[in-house]
Nucleic acid binder design. Structure first.
Lengths: 291, 291
DNA sequence: TTCGGCCATGAGATAATCTAATCTCGCTTC
DNA sequence: GAAGCGAGATTAGATTATCTCATGGCCGAA
């Protein structure tokens, strides 16, 4: 249907009525009389050639067609409304509440935030770091960057980068490592992902080692511990390659463990806003130029 | 901004003008005069307290604020328009063009389509099978179900089910398999994913075997070949477990190879329609009830 | 029954929207 | 540098779409 034909006011009337299922109350929300709504909705039904409501003694019931139309319109008007609200201060501004797993925030995102700010000064990015156990809805987040295999319920996921893991340790400890078995002679720093070391050793045909010591909930802590010669750790290559280059950490073995990837996630229930789309594209292009 | 305050007509006027950057031409699209548009847009700017266009000698240029608003509105009105078009026949009907990787279509989707049809008779699902090499935009598909690790560009992915692979062969051949090495005595059926067998043998600490013979582009062909005693194949557990139960195939070893998962994918550029959302939720609930 | 809640309807009022005619501005062109 | 042109702005008045008011009909509850 072409732009000039869109019965915008009638659609709004229908949307409000579809939520109240009562013209009188819907009329209050729209600040008009019940009669006005009645006219609008009848007009819409005629225009579409479809019955949207079944009129029953005590009110309205949506027809099959009404059921298909109403939620789309509710979403559309909510989005319109939300977008217009972003102009309330006299210029556009949007807030994105972003959850980010600690290590990604520290090693990748935070250093690049100024670049995003420069490109999108009207978007107010609020970063909430976490240990990857993140509940988008419960924590009021719009987006979350997390580590995993992309399998989250009710979530649209966009892969950001590979999460292949490498073994790291301090330059001092590296001297003691001639072959893979030598790793067993030093503490192996553990994450809450239980079988990482087991799988790493399996690659080399070795049995699972006995693990002791504290469990860390972020690669950042593991990298720090490793850098201070407290043991060897498994950390994502993509995040900690700069530590290798600067000599803070050493990578004694080439083997990689694929444990998951980094993803940008959003609840399916919340459609993507302009700013969220801009952020996603900025992320994608940032990875694109690095590769 | 509350529903009654939404300046719908003015927003439509702005949206059209933002595409033409020329009030005169925009007026033609909206079937009104240039003066009408000029009024509407000035009214909108006053209402929002924001300048949306910079007036320049030969036309209009969007301001920063206009740039943020225009694409949202274009998407919104396109969606509205598309949704209303689905009523053109007098009742709601929507078409979803779905690309599906062969094996998933044959073993999982096709048998369940009647269930979806029953729940959503107004949605017309058109299934296009392919060998997983699918280009959503190029092939005019709305959605695609494919196998992989979720890493596709410009795509929102929702994981449907695990794609763990198992070794299968015919009951006859299974008798010859006492241990993993015995596999090397029979043809190993190849897919176009090159190193599957290599990785499967690596799990057992064995070197990569020499592979010969045809390469198949769908697990379905591999399963068929295996069932006819032409060799052993690697196929997804979730799709072919019924072949095991019926005795058509045998699973001689427990070991699983994780090669990827099955995903529902959609271009970020195309927002999800009602029907697409319904289809995604139907898929999710179908897997939920099975697990 | 009678009342109350709810939607439908038709005629007239109202307000939003549009048109027509005219201006202004600044670039082009000769 | 003057005329012409293409664009948006403006103003007043016309035109509609939209709304209100008053009323009617229907159905279930009291």
């Amino acid at each position: 249907m072409d732009r000039p034909q869109l019965p915008l006011n009638a659609l709004r009337a229908f949307e409000v009525a579809s939520r109240h299922l009562n013209l009188t109350r819907a009329a209050v929300e729209l600040c008009v009389t019940q009669a006005a709504l009645s006219h609008q909705i009848r007009g819409l039904e005629e225009r579409l050639g479809v019955t949207l409501f079944r009129r029953v003694p005590r009110g309205l019931v949506l027809t099959e067609e009404g059921i298909m139309l109403a939620p789309v319109l509710t979403r559309i008007f909510d989005e319109m409304s939300g977008t217009l609200d972003r102009f309330s201060t006299g210029h556009y501004h949007e807030t994105i509440n972003l959850g980010v797993v600690n290590s990604f925030a520290a090693e990748w995102l935070i250093p690049r935030i100024p670049d995003f700010q420069r490109l999108h000064p009207s978007i107010d990015l609020r970063v909430h770091t976490n240990n990857n156990r993140v509940d988008l809805a419960g924590e009021g987040l719009d987006l979350a960057i997390r580590f995993g295999d992309g399998s989250w319920h009710g979530v649209a996921a966009t892969r950001l980068m590979r999460g292949a893991m490498m073994v790291v340790c301090s330059p001092g400890l590296a001297d003691r490592l001639r072959n893979v078995e030598d790793l067993l002679s030093m503490p192996l720093l553990r994450s809450y992902r239980a079988n990482e070391w087991e799988r790493w050793f399996a690659i080399h045909g070795l049995p699972a080692p006995q693990l002791r010591g504290p469990v860390f909930d972020t690669s950042l802590a593991i990298a720090e511990m490793a850098a201070r010669s407290h043991g060897a750790g498994l950390v994502p290559v993509a995040l900690f390659s700069s530590w290798i280059e600067s000599g803070r950490l050493v990578r004694p073995f080439e083997a990689l463990l694929t444990a998951g990837d980094y993803w940008l996630t959003r609840l399916h229930a919340n459609p993507e806003s302009t700013g969220q789309g801009a952020f996603r594209e900025w992320l994608a292009s940032s990875f694109g130029t690095e590769a």
